[in-house]
Amino acid sequence: MREIVFDTETTGLDPVSGDRLVEIGCIELVNKVPTGSRFHAYFNPGRSMPLAAERVHGLSDVFLADKPQFVEHVLELLEFLGDAPLVAHNAQFDFGFLNHELGLCGHPEVGMHRMIDTLSLARRRHPGAKHTLDALCSRYGVDRSHRVLHGALLDAELLAQVYVELTGGRQIGLELAAESSQTVVEVAVVSTRRREFRPPRLHAPSAAELARHKAFVGTLDSPLWAQ
């Protein structure tokens, strides 16, 4: 099954009040395995970047000044997304901005039935724990040492690893075998039939063998047991 894990960076928290999407990063998974296919773009929001938002992701007005507008890459983005389920952390936020931008371009919204929210998954699986992306990376041993600021592509890469763990970890071999004729899963068959054990046979030395052994020992020069 094909899924897209994605993340966005924005100028603020509310697209209805004028905030805009400035970065999107998407990672393709097939049967919970990253394929290496990805989509990443920065966008000029057509408005100034609030200092509070810039402190989160580091995207300044100067950096975004020469970037394209969302409408210039919307068709490429939609082609990449296809009809796959879309995975995001606190997905209502990301879907809200993505659909707002699509509406401004005259494109239909992405249906909410495609949304998979890892925040909701984490709350159900780990009630009472911290559910930030950083906390989940720590819980599942995902290396985030290179995450200094938020970044859509970097966060999507981290979230893809977290999502795999949240949905069952990497033990997906049987699932892959069921969905792909090119995947071979070898299963070791262990017999449960009880074995019959025979009583051990006696192998006592003969008198002649004992005599030869005694004679041989007598030829040893300063044996350890005689010291």
Results as ranks from 00 to 15, higher is better:
Glu28Trp: 05
His40Leu: 07
Val217Gly: 08
Arg144Ala: 13
Ala178Lys: 08
Arg38Trp: 07
Leu75Glu: 06
His150Glu: 07
Ala160Cys: 04
Leu75Ala: 09
Arg194Asp: 04
Arg114Pro: 01
Gln69Arg: 07
Ser138Asn: 12
Arg20Ala: 08
Ala226Tyr: 11
Arg144Cys: 10
His89Asp: 03
Lys130Arg: 14
Val190Pro: 02
Gln171Arg: 14
Val74Ile: 09
Val185Pro: 00
Leu78Asn: 07
Pro223Gln: 02
Pro199Asp: 04
Ala122Phe: 01
Asn44Arg: 12
Lys214Ile: 14
Glu165Lys: 09
Gly151Asp: 15
Leu154Ile: 03
Leu59Ile: 04
Leu13Val: 11
Arg38Phe: 11
Ala188Thr: 15
Ala84Gly: 10
Ala215Pro: 01
His73Pro: 06
Pro205Ile: 07
Phe216His: 08
His213Gly: 05
Phe39Pro: 13
Thr183Cys: 15
Arg147Leu: 09
Arg38Pro: 01
Val185Met: 02
Ala53Tyr: 03
Ser60Met: 00
Arg193Asp: 08
Leu102Asn: 06
Glu76Tyr: 06
Phe93Val: 02
Asp14Arg: 03
Glu54Gln: 15
Gly173Cys: 00
Leu166Met: 04
Glu165His: 15
Gly103Asn: 06
Val5Ser: 05
Gly18Val: 03
Val30Gly: 05
Val110Thr: 14
Arg147Thr: 14
Thr11Val: 08
Ala122Gln: 01
Ala129Ile: 06
Phe97Lys: 04
Val22Asn: 04
Gly103Lys: 10
Asn44Trp: 08
Gln227Phe: 12
Arg212Met: 06
Ala208Pro: 04
Tyr140Ile: 13
Val190Glu: 05
Ala208Val: 12
Asp221Cys: 11
Leu159Gln: 03
Ala156Thr: 11
Glu76Leu: 11
Arg125Lys: 14
Asp83Glu: 10
Phe95Ala: 03
Glu186Ile: 15
Ala208Tyr: 05
Ser191Ile: 08
Ala122Lys: 03
Gly169Thr: 04
Thr118Tyr: 06
Val185Phe: 00
Leu220Asp: 05
Gly25Cys: 14
Arg194Pro: 08
Leu159Ala: 02
His126Ala: 08
Glu175Met: 08
Gln92Tyr: 14
Phe216Leu: 11
Val162Phe: 12
Ile172Gly: 12
Glu28Pro: 05
Gly12Asn: 06
Pro68Asn: 13
Leu98Pro: 01
Asp19Trp: 06
Arg123Val: 02
Glu109Ile: 03
Pro127Phe: 05
Ala215Asp: 03
Pro68Asp: 13
Leu121Tyr: 09
Ala65Met: 00
Cys26Gly: 07
Ala129Arg: 13
Thr219Ile: 00
Tyr42Asn: 10
Thr11Pro: 01
His113Cys: 12
Thr192Phe: 10
Gly82His: 05
Leu21Val: 05
Glu9Asn: 00
Trp225Lys: 06
Thr8Gln: 02
Arg47Ile: 10
Leu159Met: 06
Leu166Val: 07
Glu196Val: 15
Gln171Lys: 13
Ser60Gly: 00
Gln182Pro: 00
Arg125Val: 04
Leu174Glu: 13
Ser206Ile: 09
Pro85Arg: 11
Leu64Arg: 02
His213Lys: 11
His146Tyr: 09
Leu174Arg: 15
Phe216Met: 09
Gln69Leu: 00
Arg170His: 15
